[in-house]
Write a protein that binds this DNA or RNA. Structure first.
Length: 468
RNA sequence: GGUCCCAUCGUCUAACGGUUUAGGACACCAGGUUCUCAUCCUGGAAAUCGGGGUUCGAUUCCCCGUGGGAUCACCA
């Protein structure tokens, strides 16, 4: 029987989460779900100074929005200090950890000296011969046994690690909290984590981790080192400075969580076919961590926009209606559900994200101010005399008025009007569309008139005639 | 500077060493669908970083350059 797959997302609560962190969480979540395993959340709050109030809750809000649901209660490292101490004691007893006798100024001096000599800084070059007994007030350091490794990484493949990258790193800080380097090893083991997914920034420390696993006599989990998401300029890791947004901003702008997951999963991963749009279930079925690209991928929000539109178009009208509830223009406040659904049905295919809904639909709920530039700036209509436009609108009004205002009758009335007037659709339809919407763009004419209703349409045409 | 990683259209990517005139998608351009915007359809432009090998044959394997990234914290 094989061990149950268990993955984790282990963010530090030091600010908001952006796409980079979420993608790591997504990959870990997908690995768990596709193996009927578990996915757990661990808050790495071992740096009190950098902790940001509320970020633990924020992290959970992000995961909830995206339905990256976790199993068990979230684990907080700050509540497990005793456990780290026990592991530390084991290392001390085994002669694999020692108290750091130097002040931080002294260590800093070593570092600067190494820098000046253009050598990498290695603390172990200054390893004290007779370190004092650890009394909780000094940092506790790992006593490394430098060696080289060749290990398989799920994403990177075979990676060689040289002993120059292995050092006596700090296990427990002088404030009594463990470092990430120590705590995550202990926790992953204690929690039974089988697959670790994390960013490339940890790759350089990986050899230290292998060394520590050996010292602790712990079997290392499978490691999947994922490349960073690059800034849109492509020259460096995406950061807040490059416009990386709080993931919940996308929720506010009306992106679908499944579209966000689709976008992030296919940023650096492809299933080998030509499929671009995936449901979450398909991602669980088809995702393969070993096929994730080794190099970083640039963040391109235009692609997210396209994927979001594709997911929106795949939604049933009822589903879409439920999801856009908070995005209607304020003018729609008193509109009834049936009317709003009809409007939504007309704009569904041109909606890219929900925050666009107001500008796309406002004229369905309220009379927009007359905008004569829509006609004076129209490439066809601007050539017409005002009197001709008035006449056309008057005729249009008459023939529209004679229908029962069903889309079908409106359509045939409009068609007949084309014949009678001998005008092109580009002229006649544009004129009616502008008169009834006062907008530069709108859905198809006949269905729009139908949804707007007789009273509104006729009144708006009258107003346009009067204003010409 | 040391260590490690990476390298296909502008972007995301596909291509058991041969079926490839390097495929798809986004973005872009042009045309079509009874108006606009959008959708949809058709077409277009657009890439294997350079140099050496290995091989009958290299996008694919090896080496050297070049370029890019990560890291070298009592941060994660």
């Amino acid at each position: 029987m094989s061990t149950k797959v268990k993955t984790r997302f282990a963010p530090s609560p030091t600010g908001f989460l952006h796409v980079g962190g979420i993608r790591t969480a997504l990959f870990a979540w997908l690995i768990a779900r596709q193996n009927q395993g578990e996915f757990v959340l661990r808050i790495e709050d071992t740096d009190q100074a950098r902790e940001v109030e509320g970020s633990s809750q924020h992290i959970q809000d992000c995961l909830k929005w995206l339905s990256l649901n976790w199993d068990e209660e979230p684990v907080y490292q700050s509540q497990r200090l005793d456990m780290y101490k026990q592991y530390a004691q084991k290392l001390i007893d085994a002669g694999r950890a020692y108290a750091d006798p130097y002040s931080s100024q002294e260590v800093q001096a070593f570092r600067e000296q190494a820098q000046k000599e253009k050598r990498p800084f290695l603390y172990r070059n200054h390893r004290p011969e007779n370190p004092p007994k650890w009394d909780d007030t000094q940092p506790l350091r790992f006593k490394a046994e430098p060696c080289s490794y060749k290990k398989t990484d799920l994403v990177m493949g075979e990676i060689g690690y040289s002993e120059e990258s292995i050092d006596d790193f700090i296990l427990i800080k002088s404030d009594g909290f463990p470092t990430y380097n120590f705590a995550h090893i202990v926790d992953d083991h204690e929690m039974g984590i089988t697959h670790v997914v994390r960013g490339q920034e940890f790759l350089a420390s990986q050899a230290n981790y292998f060394n520590l696993y050996e010292a602790l006599d712990i079997k290392a989990p499978q490691i999947a080192t994922v490349p960073p998401i690059l800034s849109p300029q492509g020259n460096k890791k995406l950061s807040k400075r490059d416009g990386a947004k709080d993931i919940l901003e996308y929720q506010k702008e009306g992106y679908l969580p499944e579209a966000m997951l689709n976008f992030l999963a296919t940023l650096g991963w492809s299933d080998g076919t030509e499929q671009e749009v995936f449901t979450v279930d398909e991602l669980i079925k088809k995702f393969d961590i070993t096929k994730v690209q080794k190099g970083g991928a640039q963040f391109d929000e235009r692609r997210l926009l396209w994927i979001n539109g594709a997911h929106i178009r795949n939604l049933s009208l009822d589903d879409l209606y439920a999801k856009v509830a908070t995005f209607w223009p304020e003018e729609a406040e008193d509109a009834n559900e049936d009317y709003k659904k009809e409007v939504l049905g007309l704009v569904q295919e041109r909606l890219k994200y929900f925050a666009e809904l107001p500008e796309l639909t406002r004229f369905f709920f309220a009379d927009l101010p007359l905008n004569l530039e829509l006609i004076s700036g129209h490439k066809q209509l601007k050539k017409y005399e005002t009197s001709d436009l008035k006449e056309l609108l008057t005729k249009a009004k008459e023939s529209i008025e004679a229908t029962d205002f069903s889309t079908e009758q409106l359509q045939s009335a409009l068609n007949k009007l084309l014949e009678e007037t001998g005008e092109k659709p580009a002229v006649l339809f544009s004129l009616i569309r502008i008169a009834t919407t006062q907008s530069p763009a709108s859905p198809e004419l006949a269905p729009s008139l139908h949804v707007l209703g007789k009273e509104r349409v006729l009144q708006r045409i009258d107003q346009q005639i009067a204003a010409l």
